[in-house]
Nucleic acid binder design. Structure first.
Lengths: 210, 210
DNA sequence: TGCAGGTTTGACCATTTGGTCAAGGGAACC
DNA sequence: GGTTCCCTTGACCAAATGGTCAAACCTGCA
């Protein structure tokens, strides 16, 4: 009868499947983060992956499927640093650690940052459910933690939501607006990240010290 | 012989030309800021402008020409607030006024902000010359002003370049990442801008007070 | 009112692009 | 060695898209 699985299911079964899906996602990250979803073509991705277009579509049913899988897979990594901000720690150091970890990610994973940026600037058509679900839940939880610290007088009063927005904005800026920053600073490689690190440390430390 | 201008030149000559080029640019701003350059189609713009596609191309020679004219026209408006930051004023109030004006622009002109964001996230292919020219010059000039204030002990020491980046990041975030912010806060209209205003005022005031 | 130039559009075109398909090549297991 | 499923691809397709063109339609002015 009709064979159940024409195309590879969710989990790669064979070595080849594993290798090729990885190659494709890696290539897709490159292309999507550079040109956005609509600006990217299957041919570009196929070429970047060193595969033929029909071969891409053997592993993924469509262009959007590749994009969706990328985003799904990266969402966790992206939220991880915020999850690690724990009520038990020393408040200012917990928040500062979050800031600097986020900055580190902007440096190490600029493609991932731009992938999300592209998506959100255009109204987040494909990830609004995750924003209103997972992300909102996590943020709501962590703003409570921050409120707690404020009540205890351990950090200066702030609007916790807007504090988080400021952290996102300032750190991701170094990945998302990289082209602009480089156009102004003309840094050698990532040399400007050292100053950025010092700057953001100062900014948020002054903001939060009671 | 050959009539010089087949298509309307730089400056609109007739009322109809003026009206239609304006309508087109307005529609194009809407579409480009929402879908990015490659994600936008001439048909979309034409429909939004209430004109036929060939009619669009009677007023502008190509899709990129529309985009270019939009960006050129908006660049000045965009840089204006920074120009207004003067060495003569009271330093903290000058900087704070810039921050709040920028935030105001994020609220009033989110489409313009997203137009630039889309462009820069994707590597600023069409405006790198302006970034390395006009923008860099202006920023270089204003960082000098800030350095002066620091030397005079009138504001706390900061890296002036990264201060400006932080201002851009935090204010434009409310326009560029609007979808995300609304997904988390579910504000009524623009009600969250009041809190944003207070937050950014606090953030930069604490940062800059000596 | 006539007419010269500005304005509008339906029909059309070439290219790009997401996606299909049937047929041919491999790997692994019996 | 053969069979069975997995993998790969050249050729193809329909729709979308940027752009053209000639003909028709307006509009302002002498």
């Amino acid at each position: 009868m009709g064979i159940e699985r024409q195309m590879p299911g969710r989990q790669p079964r064979t070595r080849i499947q594993k290798k090729n899906t990885e190659t494709i996602l890696e290539a897709a990250l490159d292309v999507f983060s550079q040109h956005g979803f609509r600006g990217s073509t299957l041919d570009q991705i196929a070429k970047a992956a060193g595969l033929s277009k029909p071969n891409l579509l053997y592993y993924f049913p469509s262009k959007v499927a590749i994009h969706r899988e990328l985003i799904d897979g990266l969402m966790q990594t992206w939220l991880d640093p915020l999850r690690k901000m724990q009520a038990e720690g020393e408040p200012i150091e917990e928040i500062l650690a979050y800031v600097l970890r986020k900055l580190e990610m902007a440096r190490e994973y600029p493609r991932e940052s731009r992938l999300f940026a592209n998506e959100i600037v255009q109204g987040a058509p494909n990830i609004m459910d995750k924003i209103e679900g997972e992300l909102k839940d996590l943020v709501d939880e962590k703003t409570q933690v921050i409120e707690g610290w404020i009540s205890a007088g351990r950090i200066a009063p702030v609007d916790p939501y807007h504090l988080i927005f400021s952290i996102w904005a300032t750190t991701q800026h170094y990945a998302d607006f990289d082209a602009q920053i480089r156009g102004i600073l003309h840094p050698e490689g990532d040399s400007h990240f050292e100053a950025a690190r010092a700057h953001l440390d100062t900014l948020f430390r002054r903001m939060l010290t009671p």
